[in-house]
């Protein structure tokens, strides 16, 4: 892999993250880390969704299901052996990668819309299972005791913020690498015309399974620290539809065919939501997301990235 400006920026962002969380270089109040964590979590989720949805054209309505399985994997690991976060993240990722693989294997031989409907079903089946599973707290939820402070970060939330920042950088880099690789070109061919892609030599089923697996992995990874962040997890919060809506709306608004789209969409929409939940009601906030989503898919199908390109290209 060749290094370019992207990697320099990514490294700089990581270093800056370390500087503000470990050395408290800038006077940032605690709420900013708290809100920033959520925004970064959406960067991971939107990027993960986009690998299936944007690159390949397969809509996943079940982001919340994958996210929650990641979160509940952490609960199980904590209950079993008080596992640390460094263990939770890869295991949650692996569990969700397997879930994605299985899901893909069952439904991807069918038309794309069936995959979409199946993902919707999956989220609710999983939620029902968790509600009925007492080991992880059932419908009432589960607590996790976390340290208030952790060295060398000080406040635990700052630590979680830094972890999520690294995960976001990892997710975006992975998406960018995929997009520019042979695999990414294969994804694009599948999105444009699956039969033609197959007849051009593209192993479509294998590529689709790669996509569900990678996408599932990243969603699980995003969910893993969730329990530590909130300290208490219940089915209705982990399986919240908001994750599904945002992970679709953010790439669609940002621009779904490139890695920059979900990143821009998540940073923009995520930040606005964090500010808006404080200032206006959270329902109105969600309504705005829904309206924006519908508006963008109708009026700006290439999202913000497409608008910028068109504006720069002087209308090609």
């Amino acid at each position: 892999m060749r290094l370019d400006a992207f990697h320099v920026v990514a490294a700089a962002v990581a270093l800056l993250g370390a500087a503000v969380t470990i050395f408290d270089l800038l006077p940032i109040n605690k709420f900013a880390f708290f809100a920033g964590y959520v925004v970064l979590q959406y960067v991971v989720l939107a990027t993960a969704w986009n690998i299936m949805g944007g690159y390949m054209g397969y809509v996943n309505f079940g982001t919340a299901g994958f996210f929650a399985v990641g979160a509940y994997t952490s609960v199980v690991l904590y209950n079993l052996m008080q596992a640390p976060l460094i263990v939770m993240i890869p295991v949650a990722g692996a569990v969700c990668a397997l879930l994605g693989l299985g899901m893909g294997y069952l439904t991807l031989r069918l038309r794309g819309v069936f995959f979409a409907i199946a993902t919707l079903a999956l989220a609710i089946v999983l939620e029902t299972l968790v509600v009925n599973w007492d080991y992880v707290g059932g419908a009432t939820g589960a607590y996790i005791l976390r340290a208030r402070e952790i060295a060398p970060f000080g406040d635990y939330v700052e630590f979680l913020f830094f972890v999520m920042l690294l995960l976001a950088i990892f997710a975006v880099s992975a998406a960018r690498w995929i997009e520019r690789s042979k695999i990414g070109r294969g994804f694009a061919a599948i999105r444009d015309d699956e039969v033609a892609a197959e007849c051009a030599g593209v192993p479509t089923l294998r590529l689709k399974l790669i996509a569900t697996t990678v996408s599932g992995f990243l969603m699980g990874v995003a969910g893993a620290p969730f329990v530590l962040y909130v300290g208490f997890v219940e089915p209705s919060s982990a399986f919240n539809l908001v994750y599904a809506v945002n992970s679709i709306a953010m790439p669609m608004i940002g621009g779904a065919t490139t890695w920059a789209g979900p990143l821009i969409g998540a940073l923009l929409l995520g930040s606005v939501q964090q500010v808006a939940t404080v200032t206006i009601s959270s329902e109105l906030n969600l309504l705005i997301v829904g309206v924006l989503l519908v508006f963008f898919v109708i009026a700006a199908p290439e999202g913000i990235v497409g608008l910028v390109r068109k504006w720069r290209g002087g209308g090609r």
């Binding site: 949805g53 794309g112 539809l241 997301v289």
Partner: peptide
Amino acid sequence: EALRGLAFFFGVMFI
């Protein structure tokens, strides 16, 4: 229809 049409109905449902 495949990608954006689905997202559209999802948005309508949500609204």
